[in-house]
Simulated assay, not measured.
Amino acid sequence: MRPLTPDDVIASFVNAPPDELRLVELPLDFALVDWDHLDFLAWRNPEVRGRGYLIAEHDGAPVGIVLRAADGGSRARTGMCNLCHTMQPGDQVSLFSARRAGRAGDRGGSIGTYICADLSCHENVRLAAPLAPSEIRANVDRRIDGTRARTEAFVAEVLSGT
């Protein structure tokens, strides 16, 4: 991923009205991000409960998406993240929704998917050992490529409302 400035990050969001953008808090370690080894940037906002952000490249440009975590915990014993395909304890996977970009979002359209609750998919796929006993050990490069492809597909789906 190409390096982004704080202004680039704010300008990248496609599904948030201007009044929501003032709530964006960059990750505490933003100045230390290793952009060369990053497929996408995702983090939770510690100041606003249930808010998260994801920035991925789409058609060569950064596209930011504001995410909202569903209230309440999962009753499932385990869950799978739809981005990194990592099996986790149920309380470590959350349903996140994203308002669609453009007119579809203006009309209330949204999309939802299950994602690691701490948005740590980027790190999870780089672990050589499975996180759960039932998880199949896969080639790390294959996991990274799959996560990147599924993240890009999620971003494209958010953009499909424009």
Rank of each mutant, 00 (worst) to 15 (best):
S97P: 07
E135R: 02
E25G: 06
D145K: 09
D71L: 13
G108F: 14
G105Y: 08
R148T: 05
D141W: 10
E157G: 02
F154G: 01
D59Q: 11
F96H: 01
M1L: 06
T113F: 03
A104R: 05
D7R: 14
A149W: 06
P27D: 06
Y53D: 11
R68W: 09
R142M: 10
R44Y: 04
D91M: 04
N15P: 08
F96Q: 12
A132T: 06
R143Q: 01
I55P: 00
A156C: 14
A56K: 08
T78C: 02
R126M: 15
L28A: 05
A153K: 14
D29F: 04
M87Y: 08
E123C: 05
Y53M: 00
L26N: 04
L54P: 06
I65C: 00
F30Y: 13
N139M: 09
T113V: 09
R143L: 12
G105I: 04
S120A: 12
F154A: 03
L38R: 04
L131G: 13
L26R: 02
A61V: 15
A104W: 03
R2C: 07
I144K: 11
G60D: 07
L23A: 13
A101V: 14
A149Y: 15
L127M: 09
P89M: 10
V125P: 00
D71N: 13
R126K: 14
G108M: 04
R44N: 11
L23K: 02
C81F: 01
S160C: 15
P130R: 03
L95N: 13
V140P: 00
P133Q: 15
A70N: 03
T151C: 13
G72P: 10
M1E: 03
T147S: 07
T147H: 01
V9F: 02
D7S: 07
A61F: 06
D36P: 05
D145Y: 12
I55W: 00
L32S: 13
G108K: 07
V140W: 12
L119W: 00
R77K: 09
A61H: 14
L4I: 15
P17I: 09
V140M: 10
S160V: 15
S97N: 09
L21M: 10
L26I: 10
L4E: 01
E25V: 11
N45Y: 00
Q88Y: 08
N45H: 10
A98W: 02
D7T: 13
L119K: 00
I136R: 03
G60W: 09
P6F: 07
I115Y: 04
I111T: 15
M1V: 09
V140Q: 04
D145F: 04
D29N: 09
R51V: 00
H37C: 03
C84W: 06
M1F: 07
F13K: 04
I65T: 06
D145G: 11
S160E: 04
T147G: 07
D141C: 14
Q92M: 15
S160M: 13
L32V: 13
D29T: 05
G79M: 02
A132W: 15
D39F: 06
A98N: 03
T147K: 03
L21Y: 02
